[in-house]
């Protein structure tokens, strides 16, 4: 075999290997989606979305309260996480060229890799123990903390992309620096920041671990901040771990809802990004 043929052969082998590895990587992903769809779609009907869970043995029942609970938790998380995250990101980008900024940046990076159950334990000791009970408030705080690193870092990166000439234009008009940041720089980076926020929300939406002992679960309608509250992931966790066949079915259906929700949030983030690139 000549040198040329050998090279061609090695090229072929490597290429086939890469294709095989890629296929192998997408198999779990696609089979997961297909399996969830297959198992879950049978349990879906209108009452599933709006009804409360029923006791074991009774047919029907739904995840209405868990769905509502998830939104309540996300709302609390957003109210806490978005302003803190965005302004911390602004700080890092506009004033963070110092050792403190470096430290914060490093902490944010570490935090985004911390197992989410640790955040749950942290909030448990900090909020749940003093309040003597899991609550929607504690769960929301846990999700908010989980969202922080993503929001901080995307905000910082996007604010840095805003051209310096706009900052100078603002300053040269006699605007104070905080006004320039608030009225010129932030609006210019807004659509990108919204994308980051959306991705952070999508991630928080599917988190179970931080909610297990901060928000707990509650089989009735609730929007009270100081009471336990159900959420979609925790509901799935409880149903899937139960010994009852009809609850397993409910868990699959709820999992499908969760996957679709996360998908929608990700698509929304994508759309925001592409509308931004069209505007430029």
């Amino acid at each position: 075999m000549g040198v040329y043929q050998r090279r061609k052969f090695v090229d072929g082998v490597m290429r086939s290997w890469c294709i095989l590895a890629t296929l192998f990587a997408v198999i779990p992903l696609f089979s997961l989606l297909a399996y969830v769809l297959l198992k879950g779609v049978g349990g879906l009907n209108w009452s599933f979305f709006i009804e409360l869970p029923k006791p074991v043995g009774e047919l029907g029942g739904g995840i209405g309260n868990a769905l509502l609970g998830s939104f309540v938790l996300l709302a609390i998380a957003s109210i806490f996480g978005i302003p803190v995250g965005v302004f911390a990101g602004v700080y890092l980008s506009e004033f963070g060229a110092n050792p403190f900024g470096k430290l914060v940046r490093f902490c944010a990076d570490v935090m985004s890799g911390v197992p989410s159950i640790l955040i749950g334990i942290f909030v448990y000791t900090l909020v749940v123990l003093p309040m003597r009970s899991p609550s929607a408030f504690a769960g929301g705080i846990a999700l908010g903390i989980l969202m922080l690193p993503t929001i901080i870092r995307t905000t910082e990166e996007l604010i840095k992309l805003v051209p310096n000439s706009l900052r100078e234009a603002g300053l040269a008009l006699g605007m104070a620096k905080w006004r320039v940041i608030l009225r010129v720089v932030l609006p210019a980076g807004m659509s990108g920041i919204a994308t980051g926020v959306m991705l952070a929300i999508a991630r928080a939406f599917g988190e179970t671990a931080p909610l297990l002992f901060t928000a707990g679960s509650y089989p009735f309608w609730s929007v009270h901040l100081n009471k336990r509250i159900s959420s979609l992931p925790v509901q799935i966790y409880e149903y899937a771990g139960s010994p009852y066949e009809e609850w397993h079915q409910q868990a699959w259906a709820a999992a499908l809802v969760l996957v679709v929700m996360v998908l929608i949030l990700n698509l929304a983030a994508k759309l925001l990004t592409s509308s931004r690139s069209h505007a430029r």
Partner: peptide, 20 residues
């Protein structure tokens, strides 16, 4: 300095209107 900059205006090399 903020007060000075509203008395002494500036136009830059590259046009920089606020895009938003």
């Amino acid at each position: 300095p903020v007060k000075i900059r509203s008395r002494v205006g500036m136009v830059f090399q590259r046009p920089n209107p606020f895009p938003t």
